[in-house]
Every structure is written in C-alpha cells, then in structure tokens.
C-alpha cells in the first residue's frame, strides 16, 4: 500500500481550487500552504507556452526530511504518507531546509488574522475545535490522512470513493488529479502514470516522489 497521486497537466487550467480547498480542509492560517499552483511561461514570442504546476508534498520514497529530523517527529508510514507528529516536533526547521521541493511550512507561534484587526471568523473559531494545529511546529500536506483512514475503516476506496479521497483531488473541476495505490498496478493512478509516461518533478533530487505529472 503506497498512496500516490498523478496530476494531469493537460487538464489543469490553473484555477487554484486545489490550493484553496486544501487551506479550507485543514483550516490553515494566512501564509501557510500545503498545496500551491505555480504559473509561468516558456518560450519566445510568439512560440510560447503557459506553464501551470500544482505542487504539494511529494511523499517521497527516500524523504530528505525524515533523514534530518532530530526528534523523529517526521516519519514515512507503511501507507507511504510522510507525516509530522506535532506532539513530537520541536520546531527546529531542519526539514524545511532539507526538503528540496520546499513543501514544508513552519507554523508561527504568533496568530495572524485573515482580516487583520477584525478577529477570527466563525469558520476559523470552529477550526480550532475541529482541527487544532500546533503552533511552533512544522506542518505540511498529509494526503488528507484523516479522510483516507476514516474512509478505509468504512470500507471505502481512496481515490475512487468521494468520501475517502483527499480534498484537492475532489476539488478539481477539470478532474486533473488521480489518487490511489501506487503498489497496485491496476489502480487508476498507476495506469495513468504508465499510459501517459508520468514524470516526477526534479527527478534528479533523487528522493523518489510519489506524485507524478502527466503531460
């Protein structure tokens, strides 16, 4: 069992829904992102191409972050998900430097408001109850592990069943994301990666990402 993702760059239109859905799902404060959309261009006028790369933690097979973590807070699970145990994390931020993809964030000790000087919204207040985040620790994408595990308990299939699937995958209006078990050669995500010759970003970093891109 190794959870992984494939992102179809032909389908993606750069609407930022995945980025925002993720923020909403995890009640992330201002400036903290588990998912981002990078926009660029390549070429010279008039032969140019727009580049759109939705990026997130790659849940690498050989994660640099795990190697450097002094407290053992960051681990790679049997399910392939790289997690941070916020009860153990000491906030040293070595992992921020080690991750070649820059997909980890440090949650500042000081609160910041989305509407500066105007307090927290009811949604944010409820977030403190439903999904408390530990200030002073490192946070990152966890492939919506809570959703996946809850789904598995109910006998649902992540990446297939809506209620067991990560928020960013469901969010995409162009249906550009595939999610599933990379160890299962017949899962849709595995088939897509094979058929479309999915590639990993910055393959040369050598961390063996579990997130692939389809051109």
């Amino acid at each position: 069992m190794r959870w992984g993702m494939a992102i179809d760059l032909q389908k993606c239109v750069g609407c930022f829904s995945c980025q925002i859905a993720c923020k909403q799902e995890h009640f992330l404060p201002p400036g903290i992102f588990y998912a981002q959309v990078l926009i660029g261009e390549v070429g010279t006028y008039p032969t140019v191409r727009k580049l759109i790369y939705p990026v997130l933690c790659n849940h690498c097979e050989e994660p640099s972050c795990v190697d450097v973590c002094p407290s053992g807070a960051t681990t790679k699970g049997d399910d392939g998900i790289v997690c941070v145990d916020s009860d153990v994390c000491i906030g040293c931020r070595s992992c921020l430097i080690a991750c070649p993809y820059q997909q980890r964030s440090y949650l500042p000790k000081k609160d910041s408001e989305y509407f500066p000087g105007q307090g927290l919204t009811p949604y944010e207040e409820m977030g403190k109850e439903l999904y408390p985040l530990e200030k002073g620790t490192v946070v990152k994408c966890n492939f919506c592990k809570e959703i996946i595990d809850a789904g598995l308990e109910k006998g649902l299939a992540p990446g297939v069943d809506w209620d067991a699937t990560p928020a960013c995958v469901n969010a995409c209006p162009a249906k550009a994301r595939f999610f599933g078990d990379l160890d299962d050669a017949e899962s849709e995500v595995s088939q897509q990666i094979r058929a479309r010759r999915g590639f990993q970003l910055h393959f040369e970093f050598g961390t063996e990402p579990s997130v692939y891109y389809l051109e």
Binding site: C15, F16, S17, Q19, I20, A21, W162, A171, P173, A174
Partner: peptide, 9 residues
Amino acid sequence: GGLCGKGMA
C-alpha cells in the same frame, strides 16, 4: 464535485 478557486473561497 469540483469547484473553481472562487467557489472554494
């Protein structure tokens, strides 16, 4: 099931 970024916000 999908929504654009505006809807998500």
